[in-house]
Computed example of a mutant assay.
Amino acid sequence: MHAPVRLAVPLLAATALGHALHLLELLRGANLLARLRRGAQAPQIGWCFHTADGLPLAATDKTLGPLLAPMAQEGHCEGAPTHWLLAPLHTADIPSIRSVVAAHGLLVRRLALGLDQGEQVLTLGSGAWLAAATGRLGGAQVALPWYYIAGFCNDHPDIGVAVGQQHCSAGPWMSAAMPQQATALAVALAAQGLGHDLAQALEAATRPDPLREQAAFEAQQARQIRSTRDSTLARAIAFLEKHLEQPYALDAVAKAAAVSPRTLLRHFREGLGHSPLDHLHALRCARARVLLEITLEGIPGIAQACGYQDPAAFRRIFQRHTGMTPQAYRQRQSLRAPRQRWRVNPAGLGTAEKKPPGA
């Protein structure tokens, strides 16, 4: 089960605004994934900008300017915040951080009231000083950059530092040491507001994955084999990649590799530990994984695009290579919903297409 997430973002003069907006962009991505998977009625994470005193700013407030106004309108939500995002403070040193906190007593009191009422705080880097100043987080732990640890421990000895951790979740406090760890906070919020499956999808979409990158590239075009790798295996593999959709013929592969079929089988067995046909199945399944992830094409269409005329044979081979059926893989990994009626309007990304008659 998931609960509504409404994020309050105070705008202080010292706020490192870019880091706050980076987290909001990640949440925009999470909302987009939710709409792609579940349609226009999917739950959404909301946010609202607040003044330096902790008061909400209307999405139409002119002080937001042309940069923040569209973001405020997109995240518009009703009700009290469930979370407060305290971005890093753009200051020269720790004494300057203390001065900023001392100058924003109204915001600190609003944060304290919110914590008393069950709201949570998220902090990036030095934003932790604002959360700690509430006096409500004794006994908690916080993730901090190494260069802040000594000063923070002197100011707040009742709060522990999660040494060696780049992000930490302790009761009502989620923290990240460095702005690069904003993704971890976004994934945690997505789990609360959208569900664990969409949180996992967001994490997968924002995490570098060399294997998927290679599979996506190979699905678009055959990998180029450098002339310095002009070997029997290289020639055979290049042929298989180029003729991925065509029926398999050992004689044709051997001819492309300039060896006999028997010699080709020996090269594959000794060099890769499997047959040319097994290698072709692996290449086809790599393409199928990408198509299952990024398209709404049906299983028979994907089977044909990967060289299988029989969808049942494709299902058996795909399950042997991946450990799951194509449909199960799509449900677990895809960024789009498998059902045609959940496609979104490319212009608005907020309205689902009408369901076809008779569907």
Score class of each variant (00 low, 15 high):
A347Y: 07
G151Q: 13
H19M: 13
Q220D: 11
R269V: 02
H19S: 15
A347F: 09
P179E: 08
T134I: 09
A288L: 05
F152A: 01
G171A: 14
L144H: 04
L264D: 08
Q73N: 04
L68M: 08
Q246V: 04
L137A: 05
Q180D: 11
T51C: 07
V121T: 03
T51D: 13
R226A: 15
Q327F: 14
P10F: 01
L64F: 01
R136F: 11
R98A: 14
G271W: 01
L233T: 07
L137Q: 07
Q200L: 12
P300Q: 02
P276G: 04
Q44F: 04
L115F: 15
H274K: 05
A249L: 08
D155Q: 10
I45V: 11
Q214V: 03
H196M: 14
R287P: 04
V253H: 01
V101S: 12
A140K: 14
Q141C: 13
A303P: 05
G350S: 13
L265I: 09
K354W: 04
V142A: 10
Q221K: 13
G29R: 03
L27R: 01
L27H: 02
A103V: 06
P157W: 10
L265N: 07
H267G: 04
L23N: 03
P66C: 00
H243F: 10
R320N: 13
H321G: 03
P157D: 09
N345D: 15
A3S: 15
D310L: 06
A34M: 01
F217S: 15
F318I: 00
A328H: 12
F239P: 02
G135T: 01
A204R: 14
A72R: 02
Q333P: 09
R262F: 10
D158R: 10
G29C: 03
L24N: 01
A150G: 11
L265R: 14
L67H: 12
R332N: 09
A87Q: 12
R339I: 02
G193M: 04
R332L: 15
P357V: 01
I159S: 06
R207K: 12
L144C: 06
L33T: 02
R28T: 08
P43V: 00
A69K: 00
P56E: 00
A186N: 07
A162M: 10
A92M: 13
V121C: 14
A238G: 14
A313I: 07
E119W: 07
G114V: 03
C48V: 03
G139A: 06
V100K: 09
